[in-house]
Design a binder for these strands. Structure first.
Lengths: 227, 227
DNA sequence: TTAATTTGTTAGTCATAACTAACTTTTTTA
DNA sequence: TAAAAAAGTTAGTTATGACTAACAAATTAA
């Protein structure tokens, strides 16, 4: 098994690219992820991405043909899942034990996920009694890298009259998360789509006896399940 | 106050050099620390150190004349103390909450001390109820960077017949720490120097009704106070 | 189906931080 | 005090991972 060994030989940047690619390919379930899309997601230039992809192909984490779409090898996925596990466990720790609010955890978890110690993360997991969801509602992979990837249904995809339950939110934007809290939305909130306005895509929703109109962009970052 | 801002603009390497210099200058209380000594301590080449010292001088963390000894500015000391605080708080957390043994914590703490988040470290401190000593017996600086630097008396400096109490140990070597545990020495152990052998500097010590002969090198890494 | 646009690639540059080799200054010692 | 040793410095190289600018391929639209 080359598995264990390779995990420790990756730079922070290599890890960042693998995780980003995984999130685009698997968590966002894109049929095709290209070089520029990855560059966009990571906020680097296409040239940087191209460079890194070459390196990751040489190291057998990524597969792609010239001018073709990007794919991850099993090894590449394995690295990404372990990063996601670390990220979500740290977020959970920060929220549940260190008084961080859900809009404060992402940035710090981005740093903490690169700490290299198998024992650290598994002990942290045990310390918190093996949590299964992070503060934003995302499933935490277990020590073997197993987790159920729940297909993401965005609030924006619902039709007028549909009722749903909020299961998770995109964790990457502080201002977005603050806004979610401010209007009173929380995980498990029941939300009804009252009106979808064709003109600008904005949506009027009802929850906890309040009504709010939110933008399409906002609704794209709220993930729900129908009830 | 430029203080707060500058703290976040340092690279991992810059932080490593400042901490190393602080430990040589202040904690080990050397009257003179030179370029090559710092290089030795950090296990890099003198050229690398020379280069970094130039940069740190330009940034006003270090002061020195050409071919002269190295010194830290107040700003430089402040950065170093904050790193030491982080290192020791993390070591305490790993030992007291995550089942790490004292020989396992150093390497992981070396990574964790570079995580940039004021809130993280202060909340961790609070979570553990403001510990004052780390697992190796070292004093943990408080949130204002204040701590008492206890002059280090090594076990090797004692004369035959002297009795002392073990207050701290050098945390940087896994094999050393394992050895300390194995022979049964622990913080607060009372140790009597039974014999100092001129020939090779080895020392016969007695503690907890056992006698052990240890090398000079070993005794250099054990810090004590006389009782 | 050609032209425009988007996407991907390559070449060359920059900053960080390591290195070796060669050299200079300072300190030690014979 | 002159030679040897140690300490410090400089120049030039390497690797990582960003960047821009220029170019090529693929896709979309007229």
């Amino acid at each position: 098994m080359t598995n264990k060994l390779n995990l420790n030989n990756l730079t922070k940047s290599e890890e960042d690219y693998l995780k980003a690619l995984f999130q685009l390919l698997i968590e966002d379930d894109s049929s095709k992820v290209g070089n520029n899309q990855l560059a966009d997601y990571l906020k680097v230039s296409p040239a940087s991405t191209n460079n890194m992809v070459k390196k990751l192909k040489a190291k057998k984490y990524v597969v792609s043909e010239k001018y073709g779409k990007l794919e991850l090898t099993e090894e590449g996925k394995s690295v990404a899942v372990r990063l996601i596990r670390k990220h979500r466990l740290w977020e959970t720790f920060l929220c549940n034990y260190l008084n961080f609010s859900w809009d404060e955890v992402h940035e710090v978890a981005e740093q903490l996920e690169h700490i290299k110690s198998q024992k650290l993360i598994n002990e942290l997991d045990r310390f918190m009694d093996f949590p299964t969801k992070d503060p934003h509602g995302e499933v935490i992979p277990n020590a073997d890298g197993e987790y159920s990837i729940i297909p993401k249904i965005t609030l924006s995809s619902l039709k007028e009259g549909e009722i749903c339950k909020l299961v998770s939110v995109n964790d990457a934007s502080v201002t977005f998360l603050k806004y979610v809290s401010e209007i009173g939305l929380a995980l498990s909130s029941e939300v009804k789509v009252l009106e979808v306005r064709e003109f600008d895509g904005s949506i009027k929703i009802g929850f906890n006896n309040v009504e709010e109109t939110v933008t399409r962009k906002f609704a794209d970052n709220i993930f729900v399940k129908s009830i």
